[in-house]
Each structure stands twice: as structure tokens, then as C-alpha cells.
Design a protein around this nucleic acid. Sequence first.
DNA 1: TCCGTTCTTTGCTCCAGAGCAACGACACGC
DNA 2: GCGTGTCGTTGCTCTGGAGCAAAGAACGGA
Lengths: 232, 232
Amino acid sequence: MNVTSHRRSTAGKPVTAPVRLLSGFSAQQRKLVLQAAELRSFPANSVIVTGGDPATHLFLLRRGRIKYYHVMKNGDEVLLAWLLPGDAFGIGTLLKDPQRHVGTAVAVDHCELLVWSRENLRSLGEVSKILAENVIRILLYYLEEVSDRLVGITAEPAKQRLARTLIRLCRRSGQLRSKGMELEITNEYLAALANVSPFTASRHLKKWERQGVIQKRRGQIVFLLPDRLLPD
Amino acid sequence: MNVTSHRRSTAGKPVTAPVRLLSGFSAQQRKLVLQAAELRSFPANSVIVTGGDPATHLFLLRRGRIKYYHVMKNGDEVLLAWLLPGDAFGIGTLLKDPQRHVGTAVAVDHCELLVWSRENLRSLGEVSKILAENVIRILLYYLEEVSDRLVGITAEPAKQRLARTLIRLCRRSGQLRSKGMELEITNEYLAALANVSPFTASRHLKKWERQGVIQKRRGQIVFLLPDRLLPD
DNA sequence: TCCGTTCTTTGCTCCAGAGCAACGACACGC
DNA sequence: GCGTGTCGTTGCTCTGGAGCAAAGAACGGA
């Protein structure tokens, strides 16, 4: 999977920025926090953290996409989150006693991340109070996301889950184009996020395309009439 | 997993105390925090918080059981958590900007809770730093719980989900009796936590009972041979 | 003790959607 | 251009487990 067109910041900017790790700081504080971080790059398909390992670093994604998933004993993978620029993980690092990573994070594209070690975080002193507040907000957001998915699986049919997932993704990372909202994701990952088989996903997406609601290319979806998705 | 070798307590206390809101305080600090709280009682079946309402109070359950669930538009309920003494909710209260409750909390039995208003929390000053750390730990725990459930639904059959749910519940609130570990829960709620229909739950539970692995009464399950649950 | 209520069991039907196979379509390197 | 690998499509089969009905069992109140 190779996604060449990344972020032309001219025509396409993300629509919302829901929860941020570095908000609420004064310019000076922000500088302090950023100085304590290290900027690291990860090539596509490289493992950033492994589920179960102790969380020794806090990560903030700057560029690229990350799949965050749970690995079963038989090797099957269950996608937990689809991380985009602005998202943070490795939050257990903030705590005094060592926590373990919930899932494995793998770079889908080439990624750039800000990385804080536990020591550097501890040296932040008073500033870390604001950081804690942000982290609580982020965790509440993740919790709501996962809960929503749980609710979806237990109480909604596949088509609705798919539609909702599409809308959520669009809100988070849709890019405004002339034709409509554009989304960069493969059927496979979309299906995994909606907890639907890739076959079922493909079927419904094709149907929506035939109805003129969306338009598909490889690894890309363009919303033409976003409102017409849920009612069908 | 061997349930009996956990912690010898005086016949009838919960086995583990995984994540606590009030840990890490000195005796004096603890007193301060407790003084800022109000002790409130809720009768069985009363609503404590409603999903979607702004979170104005932080709750810590002292006695009783609470079901925490999401209400769908059609009125269906999806159980998100089964709260027991020591569990906290309404965590969004900690944040500066108002958050909304993710789910609705209803007392299953008669309940006693410690309640902190936003104002009282803000008056705690330095102590709230420890509180923040505890809250982060609690949120990480909840996140892991829900993620585990998500993983279960997408990758495990009904029987395994049921077994795992039973084991988790047992670890959290099992009470040591002479025959084995005792658990107070109805088929219905157990089924909801495992994301299984009550019928499927009943079938598997009956089978385990016939195999002598567990023993059932109304609203109660006794583990006789906990190890023999998963292998079938 | 009796009755109403709330849980539990069990046989049966039925279907959403997973999974396979086989093919088509696009992207990329050479 | 041509071959190779990844991604997407579509027809088909098959099954786990939901859901209903109807009966049974335990509890609580009067």
C-alpha cells in the first residue's frame, strides 16, 4: 500500500481538530514542552510501539498515518484506531508506575512524530499540569470513540456502521475538494474500523457509488452528497 | 488462571482493587479530599447521571452496583460498564471546559456514593495533581476494558467471550466461599457485558453447570473449577 | 400460603453477513 | 510496453447465534 499524494496544504486542510495534546499552553510553555521532545521519523510499515511493552515514551503524530491495533494469539489483528496528525499515544508514560501499551502502532506511510521520554516529561514540572488536563481530555475522547464502536456493533447493522465510520473519518480527516469531501483510506481499513468484512464494505460502497452519493478510486473516497449516506 | 491463589481474605471480600481514585494520598491529603465530598444515597433503579448531560459532578461508588449504559434513539440500551464499589465515573468533571457524560448511570441496588462538585474539586489545589494521575490511570483502565471487549466481539466466538467476561468479573468482584468463587450477576447483565444474547448465555452456562464447572442460582454463579472454563 | 413478577431454560426458525473463489482493475518497476 | 503485486468486485454458500414462544423455577409481598 503506497499512498503518494500526501498533504497539499493549499486546497485540502483537515476539517476539525478535536482534541490536542499541546493546547492550552502559553507560547513560552509550549516552547518548553517542544524543546523536551525529540522529532523522529519512521518509514512506512515500521513498528513504532508494540502492544504489551512498557510505555516509556509519549508520542505525538506530526505527519503520516498510523494503524493502532491489537494482535491476537493466533496472529489476527484487530484495528483499534486510525491515528492521524495531531493524535497522541503512549499516554501511560505520564504515570509514575510503568504501564503497558494497549496496542501495536505501525506506520502506514512515512511518519514524523514528536517523542517525549518519561524523564523529559518529569522535568517539565508545573507545565505538566496542563499536559495532564489535555491527556484526560484525549483519553475521554478515545473512550467515547471506542464506546461508540461498541454500541455500533451490538445495535446497528453493517450498513449503518459503515456509514457512520465514513462520516466520522470524514469529519476528522476529510479534505475539501472541488467535487466534495475527499478521504484517503482503503476499503480494508475502513471495513476494519466499521467492524465489517471487506466484502460487505465493498458491496455497500459500490451501491453508494452507483447511487451517485460517493465516488471511489483506489484507496480514496470522495463524498458528493454526504447527507444522502445514512437515510439511504 | 488460578482464582483461588489470589489473595486470602476473610471469606467474602473482593479479590483485587485494580485502580483507585483515592490512592497515593497521604493521610492528611486523603482527609482533605474526603472532606470536599458529599455522601449521597440512591435507591435501586434511580438514575444517577444521564448520558449527554454536562458532567458537573465526579462520583465514587462506595456501596451497591451501577449499570452504565448507552441509550439508542429507539430506546435500546447497550451496557458499557458494570460499576462496583471503588469505581469512579463523571470524570469529565475534572476538566475546565464542560464535558458530557458518555452514558447513563442507574443504581441496580441501593447505592452510596461520594460526590464532588466541580467547584469543590477546584478548591483542592495541589492535591488535585495526584487526583489527575489517578484519573488518568482509571481512564486507561476503562479504555483497555472497552478495547478488550471490542477485540472479543470482532475476533472471538460467543462462548469464549462469555468465558472471558465471567473470568474478568470474577477477578473484579468474586467473593471467596467454601465451594469456590461466588459472583453476583444475572444472566441478562452477564450476557450484555459479553455481547451475547441472554439465550446464548443461558445455553453455555447450563452446559458448564452440567459439566460441573460452575453452579448457578438466581442472579448468582459459583465457580467450582475456574480453570476448566476456557478449554471447555 | 398464594399470586404476581422477575429471571431462566430449551426447542425451533431464520437470516445478516462472513468467507471463499475467481475475476477485474489499477499502480508501479523495469 | 509488459509483468507483478496489491486492491477491489461480485456471485455464491453456509453457519453462528439472534430472536420468538412457551414453559419452568425462584423470589417477594400481602
